[in-house]
């Protein structure tokens, strides 16, 4: 058993024994015996089911914003990227500070294909990650590590950015044609928490009920704009998509725009207001 697992279990047992939290959201081993899945520990005995390894891909802060959990005091295991989600949620006053964040030093998460022929290659988000120690957590498990050099996080955008608008339009049109609007991308995203999503609003009906290219396009376009300056880049939307739409590309592009214009990376600092909720007179957007 790794030191991380021992550390997490000890911290969770303590939180539950002291009744500091009602339950803790962490990871356990899934039904295939290999990959982790989310697990809710309610008792000190259940704390011993918790695990942590390089398959813990889920961003568990999603569970904190579920309407059914309002009013509960919850502990949550967070990787560094998940901790950034939590920072965004707290800045947006999504809940009072009654969450206990158990930050874990992250080894990087591996990419597994659903066909089972896994490589042990790190996920795209982990190849560009420069933050392996979670910021601003209540409890830290693991030794803080020095950050090594990383790949350019926007390199993946270059081929698309080099294309003409018409070519890009054709590319996305082809991608969105496959979308089933199962909404797994939205449901797995911690930053998507509206009680009523614009895509399902009936009055006014922004997005038609038809599951077709035009409606799908509208859904994804508006969703990615809603995430501008808020998406922390966990890429879970792309991982869960059953028809493999590269949603990470859209969100990455908007992260790049926000970084260029406002020098802002979502979730990295808790004392900074999100750029799209503030306005400074000196801001120049070069809008034509």
């Amino acid at each position: 058993m790794s030191d991380l697992v021992t550390g997490i279990r000890a911290q969770v047992r303590d939180l539950l024994a002291r009744r500091r939290v009602e339950y803790v959201v962490g990871y356990e081993t899934g039904s295939d015996g290999v990959n982790a899945r989310p697990f809710f520990a309610y008792t000190t005995e259940e704390a011993d089911r918790l695990v942590f390894d390089n398959t813990c891909t889920h961003n568990l802060t999603k569970y904190l914003v579920e309407p059914e959990r309002r009013g509960s005091t919850i502990g949550v295991v967070v990787k560094p990227c998940d901790a950034r989600s939590l920072t965004v949620l707290l800045a947006e006053h999504k809940f009072p500070r009654d969450v206990v964040a158990i930050g874990v030093v992250c080894p990087g998460i591996v990419q597994r294909t659903r066909e089972g022929g896994d490589g042990e290659a790190p996920q795209a988000r982990c190849q560009v990650c420069d933050q392996h120690t979670p910021p601003a957590c209540d409890i830290l498990v693991g030794e803080a590590t020095a950050e090594g050099p990383v790949l350019d996080q926007f390199a993946r955008l270059a081929p698309l950015e080099a294309q003409s608008a018409a070519e890009r339009s054709a590319f996305w049109s082809q991608q969105f044609e496959r979308c089933l609007r199962c909404y797994a991308c939205r449901q797995t995203c911690p930053q998507c928490y509206c009680d009523e999503c614009f895509a399902e609003a009936l009055d006014p009906e922004w997005v038609g009920v038809r599951i077709g290219r035009a409606e799908n396009w509208l859904f994804h376009a508006i969703r990615c704009f809603h995430l501008a300056g808020r998406c922390i880049g966990c890429d879970e939307c792309e991982r869960v998509c059953p028809v493999k739409i590269p949603l990470g590309l859209l969100n990455r592009k908007l992260r790049k725009e926000v970084l260029d214009r406002f020098e802002y990376r979502a979730g990295t600092r808790s004392d900074e207001r999100p750029p799209l909720e503030t306005f400074r007179k000196e801001e120049k957007l070069d809008l034509a």
């Binding site: 899945r37 989310p38 697990f39 809710f40 999603k62 569970y63 089933l180 609007r181 199962c182 909404y183 797994a184 939205r186 449901q187 797995t188 869960v240 059953p242």
Partner: peptide, 9 residues
């Protein structure tokens, strides 16, 4: 249901 995300996949 604790871990269900409520998508329709």
């Amino acid at each position: 249901a604790d871990r269900c995300l409520g998508c329709k996949m």
